[in-house]
Every structure is written in structure tokens, then in C-alpha cells.
Nucleic acid binder design. Sequence first.
DNA 1: GTTTGATGTCGACCATTAAAGATGTAGCAA
DNA 2: TTGCTACATCTTTAATGGTCGACATCAAAC
Lengths: 340, 340
Amino acid sequence: MSTIKDVAKVAGVSPSTVSRVIAGNRRISKKTRLRVQRAMAELNYVPNAIARSLARSHTRTIGFTISRAVDQAFSNPFFSEVLRGMSSVAQMHDYNILLSISMDPKEEMEKCLRLIQERRVDGLILSTSRLHDPLIAALSEDDVPFVVMGRSVDLPVLSVNNDNVKAGYHATMHLIEQGYCNIAFLSGPKDLVVSMDRFNGYKQAMSEKDLPLDSQRVVFTELTEQGGFDALEQLKEQGVLFDAVLAADDLLALGAFQFAKHFSISVPEDLGIVGFNDTPVMEYMTPSLTSVRILSYDLGAEVVDLLINHLENPDKRRAKKEIVLPSELIIRDSSRRKKD
Amino acid sequence: MSTIKDVAKVAGVSPSTVSRVIAGNRRISKKTRLRVQRAMAELNYVPNAIARSLARSHTRTIGFTISRAVDQAFSNPFFSEVLRGMSSVAQMHDYNILLSISMDPKEEMEKCLRLIQERRVDGLILSTSRLHDPLIAALSEDDVPFVVMGRSVDLPVLSVNNDNVKAGYHATMHLIEQGYCNIAFLSGPKDLVVSMDRFNGYKQAMSEKDLPLDSQRVVFTELTEQGGFDALEQLKEQGVLFDAVLAADDLLALGAFQFAKHFSISVPEDLGIVGFNDTPVMEYMTPSLTSVRILSYDLGAEVVDLLINHLENPDKRRAKKEIVLPSELIIRDSSRRKKD
DNA sequence: GTTTGATGTCGACCATTAAAGATGTAGCAA
DNA sequence: TTGCTACATCTTTAATGGTCGACATCAAAC
């Protein structure tokens, strides 16, 4: 592996001259530039990113951490799509992505801090899902460049989020328009921000249409198929009536499907079901699932775009900036009571 | 941010002494060690990973590249599970993972080479899917440490693979035992190694049971739901008879489901369907899909383990080592003709 | 008084960047 | 023609934050 010194020697110039032709814009005579470039080509020289990082004291690497719990909720293609979006934009700006998956929020916090303290990354992308995550506060306190992804935050930080409130609102409206009125809400745990945002949209729609907001019809459960099933079974046992279910996640909606199947309730005639995330395979269920499509790719793309922008223009610190991505309700059979 | 010099000053020793208490094992009196450790704690010192990398000339980072085509095939949870496995083992050994997703094999090759030439990573994990990937040969030629994941390779390199041939064999055997005899094979493109391995297992089982290996019953298509549907429709139009389908991927199997539904063929009575990958939601289809479960987490874990091991014990170069992971056929309704 | 082992210090090195300094040439007034 | 400034171009030097082998010191042991 050749170094800048080798190139310098071959080109008959000093290492710093080589450095400057690499950097470009500096004033260098055309003759020397050509000579250096020829030497670089000849030696197959590629600058050592590590040495460069040390000298410039930044790495052109951004860290993306996610904890297992989130991974579970953010199931399937969501994750890989987000990654694709990230990777694509990162590459455009010549940045790299350091990935770190943790088992729990505590471990995630440690890893994040470590990445920053070790100076491995210039900034972080956070996908913490819990309501008051100490990590966000800590990072914000230490002026670490980071942006929060896929959730709303009440702190003055950078973030990119899906419009979960609006999506919850529209999904509920859709169910109401289809003639459902006893709409149950299947939520994830109470401290899961995404889920609560969707819940708020639901509440907004219900009250706007003057439908009773019966707290009995709202169940907080684990984000699993089983959780969805159990929640509805519980409702049934309690004698709570419902003719539709808005699930905060497709997995929960899947549980609702199972529930309907098990108790021979016909979907969508007697039970309307709407999920969140538009997990691809859901399209092929019978009946096909109505679901809110999240722009996963764009989420990843926007989030690194915002971070890199902040990294390279660190003008106004501690400002709040929130990019909100639209979501789209994909209406399919599971909620189409009125056949038009 | 404090440096090793700051720590040295506070502890009243030289930087090298600090370096050695960090490294551990070196001969240092308990007294000095304690003093240094106290100084480190006081200053909240964390060694700069970049500087360390430069001095030691290795980064404790491994690169994982995947190209879009693969990502598509390796759909959904497979990808995130692999990542989890990787991350988990990497963390155990105090390694980091640099992720790079490309749009096509060409871009993937460039990125891999770049990562290595820039010295950003110590080694690579490759998940190329095509039969004769020039990247593998090139890397092997340049003595770059890497291990190939999720596919078989005929070159003398390190790899971790699922036992696709055996899995294909068992899946076919299962169908035969269930009384199906005109088994069609839905394959991905011909240069997709994984798919071809599964195909080989299929052939093996068929010939072992003296069933005709009719090439008409084998269709090579895109790894999509539509591809699966079209392939079977084509078979039908050509008048080829089949009472079961072994699909090289769940998406293809999904296409078979759609086909059956569209032409009112009852599954599993008149058409047995078996897929590959055991995509979670498939369990909830009606009928539920029989599929080969791949140990995605283990795949990621093993591959990192092998790479790190090779990185830290670079004894025998250019040896072939292949770790083969078992897979499991999850029998569900779509292939259960005999109710027992 | 020399050997020995434990404990420290020194300084070269890793590959690069950036600020400051050197060199040479041209322009221009005296 | 000389002397001085200005400028372009390149080189030197000193960082960046560590690591590691070679050498120094010193007390205990022989």
C-alpha cells in the first residue's frame, strides 16, 4: 500500500503538495498537478481515511443505533428500507454508516456514548422509541450532533418523523366514513411514542365526529400478533362492543385477523381492520389489509441528509427542526364495507 | 475532550505509562496503575479510536456490503436478523460494523474495494449472490480478509452458508411423502447461487425417489410474487401438470398462493406449496405456508465470528473453510395433504 | 560490584493536514 | 538598473493522539 510520501517521491514534490492536489482547489500549477496525478495513478494510491480522520478530526462516518425493542416494532422491511435510504444519501455525500444494534435502551445509550467519545463517528442517528429517553437529553446536553428518527420529540433537537397523528386521524376518519362507529384502538405500550401519536390522531377524529371516546375500547399491549389477539379477546370478554379496529401496527392487526377468524367474525362486514406500516405481505392476506404506508426509504434518506447538513453547517446550535413526512392510507378489503 | 497527555499530566507519569495501563498486561506497579486509573476517571478519558487505529494500523471495524438485488431476495426479517447476529458477535469482540448498501453488484464492488483501500475496515463480509462474482476473486487475489455469507462458493475462501442443498432435498422429500409426485420447482434467476443450490437438492430427491425430472416443470423467474404467479400460469398454459410447487423463496410461494386462489385450486388438496425462508407473516396465511426456516441470526453471528477469528489469527492464508448451518422445514397446512 | 528484574521514560512512527516559511519571478517606482 | 513589494508555488515543520520497542533507573539479590 502506497502512502502520500511514495507519491511525493515519485512525483518529485513534497507530501503537502500531493495533499493539496488531492484537496483540489488550492493553487497548484497545472504541470505539478498532472505530474502528481500521474504518480498517484501509477502507484494506485488511495488516501488513508484513518490518517486523514486524525488530521482533520472528523471521520465522515455517522453512527446509526437501534435497540432490539425498536427493531421488533419497526418490523421487517421498514428497517431495511430505512437503511437503504440512509445508505443512499450517505454515499452521495461520501459518508459511511456505522451500525450498532443493541438489546435494550441501556445498552444503546452506552454504545452511542462510546461511539462519540471514541470519536469514531461525527454524528448519530437515534431511533429510540420511548417517551422520555435520557439518551436524547444527554446527547443534547453535550452538544453531540445527532438527529432523532421516526418519532416525535418535545426537546429542541433535530428530527425526522412520520406524520403519525395525521395518519391516525385519517385512518380513523376512513373507518367512520365506511360506517363503522364503535372503533377500538389497539395500541402498543404507553411509553411508545409512535403508538401514542397514532392514538392522538384517533382521538382527534373520534371527537371531531362526535363519537364517544370510550377508554374501554383502547387497549395497550405488546406489539405482537399474540398481543393483538389477546387484546380483542379481552374486550370481548368484558362485553365491550366494537365493529372496527385501528391497530397501531400491522402485527397487532394480524392479531385482529386471527381473532376474527377464530370467532368467525367476517371482515370487513362485521369487523373493519386497519393497520400501520403496510407490511408488504399483508397485501396478500384474505381479505387484504388496509394499512398506513410509511415512507421508510425517505425517512432514512431525510434523516442522514439533515444530519450531514448540520454537520457541515454547524451554524445555529440547539435549534429545533422537525421534518415531517407524509404517510398514505392504502385502502384494501379489510376496511371496505361499502363496496363502491 | 481529554487526551492521553492530559491524563499523564494529572497522574504525574508519562503518556506511554498511561498507554500501558490502558493496554493492561504490561508491567506496571499497582500504585501507578491506580493513580493513572483515577486520573482517567477524573478526566473522563476515553481513548481516541482513530488515533489508535492509525498507530496500530487496524480499525476493529468490519465492513458489510450488500447490493440491492440481494436485499430484495433476502427480504424482510432475514436482513435484520442477520444484522442482529452480526452486531451481537461484533460487540462481544469489541468490533464495529460499517454498513454499505449498493444498488448493483458493480457499485458493491467499488465500495468494497474503497473501504479496504482507504483502510476503513479490517475485513469484509460479502453477500454477493451471483454465481461467479469477480469481487470474490479480486479480493481473494489481493489477500483481503473477508468471508462470504449465505451462499456456496467454489473458490478457496472462508464462508458461512445455509445448507440449501439439503434443505431443498428435505422439502422435496416431504412433498413426495405427502403423496405429491408432479412437483414443480419455482426457481430464481439461473445465476442466483442460493436458488440453484435448492434446485440441486430438489433434483437429488426426485431422482432418489425415481420421479421423472421433467425440465418443463422447472421455471426460472424473478424473485417476486408476480414472478411466481406468472411462472405457474405459464406452466398451466403449456399444459404441464403439477400437483405441488417447491418455491425457492417465500415470495414465489406467495405467487403460487395467488395462482391457486385465482384458478380456484384448493391448497393443499390439489396443490401443495412449500416455500423458503419462513417469512414470519406466512404463518398466518390461510392455509399457513410450509417453509424452510433459515437461521438468519446464526448466519450473521457465525460469519462475524469467522471473520474476526481470521483477522486475529491470520495463520493459514488462502484456506477454504465453509461453515454450513442447518435449516429446518416448518411443516404447516399448505403441504399437509395427509391429515394425521 | 555486577547481575537481574521491575518499573518508567524517550522518541520514532502511523499517514495525513495546515500554518508558516522559503523560493523565485514579475511588476513597478525610484 | 536597482530595490522593493506582491504573488504564485512549493517546502518545512509541527501538529493530530496514540503505540511500542529501546533504553534508563534503581533497588534487591548474588
